[in-house]
Structures are given as C-alpha cells and as structure tokens.
C-alpha cells in the first residue's frame, strides 16, 4: 500500500516557447503510515508534485502507482483516488462556499455519492477531528476566525476519509498558537488514525518537530530524501538551495565548535535541552 512516483516529469506550457519544466524525473515512494515533510523554496516543484499525487495534474512523462495500480490506466477511477488522497491547498479557507459549516463539510462526501446518513456522520466525525463541536454546525463559515475557517476547510477534506492527507502549507498566515493547534491536530490524525501525512512547509522548525522523513525539492528534483535528522545534517547543502535548518541545529553546531560535547544531529528544542543538561551534569 503506497504511492509510487516512477520517473515523473511535468512541463508547464508544453510545446510553447515559455515552457517550464516543473518536475524533472522524480522517483519516490510514499509508503503507508509515514509522516513526511516536503520542503523546498517557492518554485522548486513541490506544489506541482503534490497535485500529481491525487491526479489533478497529469505527468508529461512517467507513471504514478497507487497501491500498485497505475493511476493513468483507463480503468482507474480518478474520483476514488481523490477521495483516498486528500489534498488541502494553501489558504484552503478560500474554497468555502456554503452557508453553514456543516453543509460545507458535507460537500466532499456528497460528491462521492453517499447516502444522507453516512454523509452526515462523516461530516460530524471530520469536524470532531479538527476540534469543532456541534455548536459550530450552523454558523456561517465566513463568521469564523482565520484559524477556525482553516479547520473547517481541512475537515472538508477529512470527510472524504482519505488514507493519505497532503497539506500545502497549512499554517501560512496563522499566528503561533493557531499554527500549533493545526499541526498538533494533524499529528494526532497521524498517530491515532495511522493516516499517511505529507506536510508541505516553509518552517524547518515545524518540520523538525513533527515529521519522520523529509523530501527536499530543488529545480524539480527530489534533491535530498531521508530521515529528518539525516537531512538536517546537510544544513550547508540546504542553505545552498535557499533553505535552512531549524535554529536549534545552528545552536548545536555553534556549541560543538566551541568544544561543547554534544551530538550534531539534534533538531528539536526538547532534544537540545536534554543533551545540554546531560553534558552539564556529566561535567562534574
């Protein structure tokens, strides 16, 4: 059970003089149950890549397999793919259109052709997952705060019961608390429902805190792909392509340079705190 991208390329404006190669022979596998961070600067191809994973864009070259089946095969149902691979776009609250929260969340399951009862059940479950209780059901989504709107929009995708959840910068524009709330909920989905999650993010701090594996996109290629500690160890290479490591990594390297005994693969505050306290304790 996995999504496999086999040597996919995508060219915008194929054949025209302004053609842009947004993906350049990308091969990667997204196995079940992983929490993946997808990073890369603007224009590196990460948004193009995720739109391939649920078939919104069709690769110019190469093939994508979902659970071993080519999604470009004629017998393959795109509709079922889109329900299995949920994609939450950037600023997803801009896609809300119904007069109340509950009806908006029902839109996805309704499109799947379900009966009324399961539609309502799914909408309720999805809203519970993002922490919005029944008191919000009849509220107009346009009266909610920015963070709440965004949660409604995410619930709209969760109501399709996806196996894989892809979020394109779900915290853009939110304040620190709003950001933590959304990411904690996503982490919970991953932990408790075993959902595969792909998180596109610009914040290395967030990525380091939540994900198991990082894919770094650059010029349409998966430039680095590995466990997050492994990837942040290459922080100089990340800088060369306009990215960075979390601030903690820089703190640790600065300490190490001064002769402080500390492992250089630390990426979170929690690890740093423990390592520093341990080293201080060992000293005496």
């Amino acid at each position: 059970m996995a999504i496999e991208c086999k040597n996919i390329s995508y060219i915008y404006g194929n054949g025209s003089p302004q053609e842009i190669r947004a993906l350049n022979h990308v091969t990667l596998t997204i196995p079940d149950g992983q929490f993946i961070g997808l990073i890369g600067h603007t224009g590196s191809g990460k948004s193009t890549l995720i739109q391939h994973l649920n078939g919104l864009l069709k690769a110019t070259e190469g093939d994508i397999l979902y659970n071993g089946e080519s999604i470009y095969a004629e017998t393959f149902s795109m509709k079922s793919l889109r329900s299995k691979v949920g994609l939450v776009f950037q600023y997803p609250e801009h896609q809300l259109f119904e007069t109340d929260v509950f009806t908006d969340v029902c839109f996805g399951p309704k499109n799947l052709g379900l009966d009324d009862e399961p539609i309502r059940r799914r909408a309720r479950e999805a809203l519970d997952l993002v922490g919005l209780d029944a008191s919000y059901d009849d509220v107009s989504p346009f009266e909610l705060s920015g963070g709440q709107k965004r949660r409604v929009a995410i619930a709209g995708v969760l109501a399709m019961k996806p196996e894989v959840l892809i979020l394109d910068e779900p915290t853009a524009g939110l304040d620190p608390r709003g950001r933590d709330e959304i990411l904690d909920q996503v982490a919970k989905l991953h932990r408790e429902q075993g959902m595969t999650v792909v998180l596109v993010s610009h914040s290395m701090e967030d990525v380091a805190r939540y994900v198991d594996r990082i894919i770094v996109m650059n010029h349409g290629n998966a430039a680095l792909d590995g466990a997050s500690k492994e990837v942040f160890r290459h922080y100089r290479e990340l800088e060369e392509i306009g990215l960075a490591a979390p601030q903690v990594t820089y703190i640790i390297h600065a300490l190490k340079e001064q002769g402080f005994p500390i492992a250089d693969d630390i990426t979170t505050i929690k690890e740093a705190r423990e390592a520093i306290l341990r080293a201080m304790g060992d000293k005496t």
Binding site: P176, R177, Q247, I251, I269, R273, I276, L277
Partner: peptide
Amino acid sequence: RLDVPQVTELSWQL
C-alpha cells in the same frame, strides 16, 4: 498566544 525564537525558548527551558 505568541512564541519566542528557538534560542530564547531553549535558554528559558534550561
């Protein structure tokens, strides 16, 4: 509902 930079957070926790 605000945050501090990681270095501030780390020193505060230590």
